[in-house]
């Protein structure tokens, strides 16, 4: 059994960056993660009985536990069959801004987000749950319907590898669009830097919530964007059709950090107010954080 250190190594983006191929990366992450657990608290949860619930008018009669009805003459529904077949949707932002890779980060935001997405997908499929994928920039670029087949992984990886960072994000309308498209309740995992109008983003997330989806927001940020460590005069070439600026970053740092803090605060508050899991994550962090966050959400969903 690999040691914890060795496992951790696989979760480190530095290591992952050396590994070619998303599938391999995802496998490393998940195996490293799972193997690193001393004892998985979630082992076998998807096939066990969860609870009984009293029948309510309109419930599907197929879920009635007839054995209980036979013994107690009361109508209860067995719920586990339905719940264990968990639906997860990975919404991957592939806009141009996700292409940014700071000097200190081994991976660009998009690559990192892809790693998370692939890992989650792999993990979900390992758990025999269904996972779907949507990539978007200014519109939904590709959409893979959710499936629990192990071979589904290949499709996911293919789509992800095909997707390139381009164009401008407009997250709000896309969320509305996707919220309409996802009929079944699902865990919606948003992987994005969320560089867009906060209000429209929040409206989009609200739409998901309205559809009773569980939403996890992985806010992928490059450490440079968080710390603004530039010293010399720099020409900043704006991604997503924003203008160029030549400036002395040292003098701007404070103001920038304030702006950025305001932005992350707004996102985090918005998410919290809607009971959405908000996971800020920088591209130099080990990937287990992403997985842990997901699994926690998954567990919450299960109970």
């Amino acid at each position: 059994m690999p040691t914890v250190e060795a496992n951790q190594k696989y979760l480190d983006p530095q290591t992952l960056a050396k590994i070619e191929g998303l599938e391999l990366r995802a496998r490393r992450i998940v195996e490293g993660y799972v193997a690193g657990l001393h004892r998985s608290p979630y082992q076998g949860f998807s096939i066990e009985f969860a609870e009984h619930r009293e029948y309510a008018p309109g419930d599907d009669l197929r879920h009635v536990d007839w054995k209980v009805f036979g013994r107690t003459d009361k109508v209860y529904l067995k719920q586990y069959e339905e719940e264990t077949n968990l639906l997860s949707y990975l919404l991957l932002d592939t806009s141009e801004s996700m292409h940014y890779q700071g000097e200190r980060s081994p991976l660009s935001k998009l690559e990192y987000a892809k790693c998370i997405a692939a890992s989650l997908g792999y993990l979900v499929l390992q758990q025999h749950d269904s996972v779907g994928l949507a990539t978007f920039d200014s519109q939904v670029r590709s959409m893979v319907r959710a499936s629990g087949q192990p071979s589904h992984m290949h499709q996911l990886l293919h789509v992800m590898e095909q997707s390139q960072a381009e164009k401008k994000t407009s997250i709000g309308p896309i969320f509305h669009d996707l919220a309409e498209r996802l009929k079944k309740r699902a865990v919606v995992v948003i992987l994005s830097d969320l560089f867009d109008d906060i209000t429209s983003i929040m409206t989009g997330i609200k739409h998901f919530k309205h559809r009773r989806h569980d939403v996890i927001v992985f806010h992928v940020i490059d450490p440079d964007e968080r710390d603004f460590p530039f010293v010399k005069t720099t020409k900043f070439r704006g991604l997503e059709q924003l203008p160029e600026v030549v400036t002395d970053p040292r003098q701007l740092r404070k103001a920038y950090l304030k702006e950025f803090e305001k932005f992350t605060q707004a996102i985090s508050q918005g998410c919290r107010s809607q009971y959405v899991d908000y996971v800020p994550i920088t591209t130099d962090q080990p990937l287990d954080i992403a997985l842990t966050s997901y699994l926690t959400r998954r567990a919450a969903h299960t109970f």
Binding site: K109, K232, F236, L242, V245, A255, Y256, E259
Partner: peptide
């Protein structure tokens, strides 16, 4: 004589520039 970087979080940089 400056170095050149592509920058994603331009929106916030621009806001900072305008303010500072």
């Amino acid at each position: 004589k400056y170095r050149e970087v592509q920058w994603a979080a331009m929106e916030y940089l621009l806001a900072a520039i305008i303010k500072s």
